[in-house]
Simulated assay, not measured.
Amino acid sequence: MTSVTSLFASVEADLELMTENLKNLVSARHPILFAAAEYLFGAGGKRLRPAIVLLAARATMPHQALSSYHRRLAEITEMIHTASLVHDDVLDESEVRRGVPTVHSRFNTRVAVLAGDFLFAQSSWYLANLDNLEVVKLLSRVIMDLAEGEIQQGLNRFDTSLSMDAYLEKSYCKTASLIANSSKSAGLLSRVSSQLAEDLYHYGRHLGLAFQIVDDILDFTASDEVLGKPAGSDLKSGNLTAPVLLALEEKPYLEKLIEREFAQTGDLEEAIALILESRGISRSRELAAQHSKAAIECLSNLPASEARQALIDIADYVLSRMY
Rank of each mutant, 00 (worst) to 15 (best):
N156A: 15
D159G: 10
T160D: 08
T160M: 05
S161G: 12
L162A: 06
S163I: 09
S163L: 13
S163A: 14
A166N: 13
A166F: 09
Y167I: 06
Y167N: 02
L168N: 10
L168K: 13
L168G: 03
E169R: 15
E169D: 14
K170H: 02
Y172R: 14
K174L: 01
A176I: 12
S177M: 13
S177Y: 11
S177F: 07
S177R: 10
L178D: 14
A180C: 04
N181Y: 12
N181R: 15
S182M: 09
S185M: 03
A186E: 09
A186F: 05
G187F: 02
L188G: 10
L189C: 07
S193R: 10
S193L: 04
S194I: 01
Q195H: 13
Q195D: 14
E198W: 03
E198R: 10
L200H: 10
L200W: 07
L200R: 02
Y201A: 01
H202D: 02
H202N: 07
Y203W: 14
Y203Q: 06
Y203H: 03
Y203N: 08
R205A: 03
H206G: 00
G208T: 12
A210C: 09
A210L: 00
F211C: 06
D215F: 04
D215R: 06
I217L: 06
L218Q: 08
L218H: 11
L218W: 04
L218R: 03
D219G: 01
F220V: 06
F220Y: 15
T221R: 06
V226L: 12
G228F: 10
S233D: 10
D234Y: 07
A242G: 05
A242T: 14
V244Y: 00
V244Q: 00
L245C: 08
A247R: 06
A247K: 07
A247D: 10
L248G: 06
E249F: 01
E249R: 15
